[in-house]
Design a protein around this nucleic acid. Structure first.
Lengths: 141, 141
DNA sequence: AGCGAATTTGATATTCATTATCAATACGAG
DNA sequence: CTCGTATTGATAATGAATATCAAATTCGCT
């Protein structure tokens, strides 16, 4: 698992320690392919490490973000969701306002245009978030 | 002011009342051309109506959203910002991660591509948000 | 113009996600 | 193995947003 190695490397470089809790959270989270609320992740980790505390989940997610291995998204409910970053890939989201379903999509042309916009406005772009809201095929009745 | 009329119309259609507070908030807010946090708006309204309460500002913003005259944006700090919707126009945001500056931009090609993406995935699109993060010309050193 | 039912206001309490605190514990360099 | 330091987890604290409720305001109606 390359990404887990990255995380270990990040910890080491920063003089931080590798712990059972961090390793469990990272190895589970980084293998996933979807978003998690903190609560969802907490419940998953509890299965392999029942003593885990909420604070540790929050803290580890923050570390994963700093290491560039996780991103944060805010959709329609107030909840913050986290998802693992998969190398070289970037996707955006389509959110159904009725059923809450979240679909991912990738569009290189949009990515490219965003880079151009940033260059025109003299910004050094680091990342972006693009969310489309609407009604999915089932909910648009 | 067309939009203020729209707001009056919205209130009336819903059987809601027009009040000094709502009118003050709407007429100030809808004439602006930038985002406001609730606190910023509260402080502005206080100038013309010192007795205004926070709850009323929250409630009126919610009404303006329902009426389609305001949108909500979440950038980098945890704060929710609101901005007036100007007819026919849509813009997205570029946020400097260092100084927090927020620049607006408009790009029809991106808009167009988003519509296509939604159509391909069989979504009925209502709106979208696109935020680019990076460093502005001053902060990229 | 004024009445009265119904809505609105604003002060305050409450909720809920996230962060801070801190004593006890675990890590890992030497 | 030891010891200094980082980490954990239970809990308290924070802060934005919402709910509550008595008092005030609005507006259709006479």
């Amino acid at each position: 698992m390359n990404k887990e190695k990255n995380f270990q490397g990040y910890l080491h470089d920063k003089g931080l320690k590798s712990t059972r809790q961090r390793d469990d959270i990272a190895s589970f989270f980084l293998q996933q392919d979807k978003h998690f609320t903190v609560e969802e992740l907490y419940n998953e980790i509890k299965k392999s490490y029942p003593q885990i505390g909420y604070a540790t989940v929050y803290r580890t997610l923050k570390l994963l973000m700093e290491a560039g291995l996780a991103t944060e998204c805010q959709f329609v409910d107030g909840l913050t969701r986290f998802e693992p970053v998969h190398e070289g890939e970037h996707h955006d989201h389509l959110v159904c306002l009725k059923c809450g379903k979240i679909i991912e999509f990738e569009n290189d042309k949009i990515e490219q245009l965003q880079i151009e916009v940033a260059r025109e406005l003299d910004f050094e772009l680091t990342n972006h978030k693009c969310v489309l809201y609407g009604y999915c095929n089932k909910c648009k009745e």
